[in-house]
Design a protein around this nucleic acid. Structure first.
Length: 220
DNA sequence: CGGAACGAAGAGGTTACGTCA
DNA sequence: AGTGACGTAACCTCTTCGTTC
């Protein structure tokens, strides 16, 4: 009986029990050809490799990649996050795994990578939020102080330079993270050098989020 | 022993591409 | 040549469930 290991195995793990009675860690060479043609074989009897559950029942069905297999897969992943069919076939031969298993491993690995990246971005955004909150708090404080002083036309001190500047003239480039000052009569000034937070390992996606959160109508 | 975490694998959806009428 | 329907492969996301700690 041969079962297509690719799509349509069907029924999830419940129905897959019969299929996964195999220890897919070990692929006898004579079966490789069968698997590569999209078929499997009845191997239940052959896979009592000491990995039993000790209850006298069927052997463990869950594949556990060996350290060497994992190492090679990781190494391959470092070079390329996706495999072309030739690479997949070669790797599966080298690892004595089915191409489908190599494919699934890469899929899961990509998903884990993405998850990790997303978590990093989440952390970054949290810190960003904290930083902005603190800046906001300081600015509110300055506004309160200036209001208390009643100094006439609105002017704020830069949080970084302490030099009074017209309140409406302070802005920040979301891309390069630099503060710019403009005056109504002189037009836009060149980007100043005051830097607050400089993203290092965040994706452009996150930077875009930050960008648009600060400049909803920005087109730069 | 129960539960959380991890990871292999299945299911279903999306997209890109080739083929054919 | 352009186009829509169809099949297929590759990939992604979500989920399940065996295993380990």
């Amino acid at each position: 009986m041969c079962i297509n290991p690719n799509k349509g195995e069907g029924g999830g793990a419940q129905q897959g029990v019969m299929i996964r009675n195999l220890d897919i860690n070990q692929v006898p060479s004579e079966e490789l050809e069968c698997w590569s043609q999209g078929v499997s074989v009845e191997l239940v009897e052959e896979y009592d490799d000491g990995n039993n559950n000790g209850s006298g029942g069927p052997p463990r069905k869950k594949l556990r990649l060996t350290k060497e297999q994992s190492r090679l897969l990781e190494e391959s992943f470092r070079h390329n996050h996706t495999l072309n069919p030739k690479q997949k076939e070669a790797l599966s031969m080298q690892l004595k795994l089915r191409p489908r298993q190599v494919e699934v491993w890469f899929q899961n690995r990509r998903a884990r990578s993405k998850l990790k990246q997303t978590e990093m971005e989440c952390e970054y955004l949290k810190r960003w939020y904290g930083s902005l909150s603190e800046q906001n708090r300081l600015l509110q404080k300055e506004v309160e102080e200036l209001r208390a002083m009643k100094v006439g036309p609105a002017a704020v001190n830069s949080a970084h330079s302490c030099e009074p500047q017209p309140a409406s003239a302070v802005s920040m480039c979301p891309r390069c993270e630099r503060v710019t000052t403009t005056t109504p009569d002189k037009g836009p000034a060149s980007w100043a050098t005051t830097t607050t937070i400089k993203p290092t390992s965040v994706s452009s996606k996150v930077q875009d989020i930050i960008h648009h959160s600060r400049h909803p109508s920005a087109a730069c």
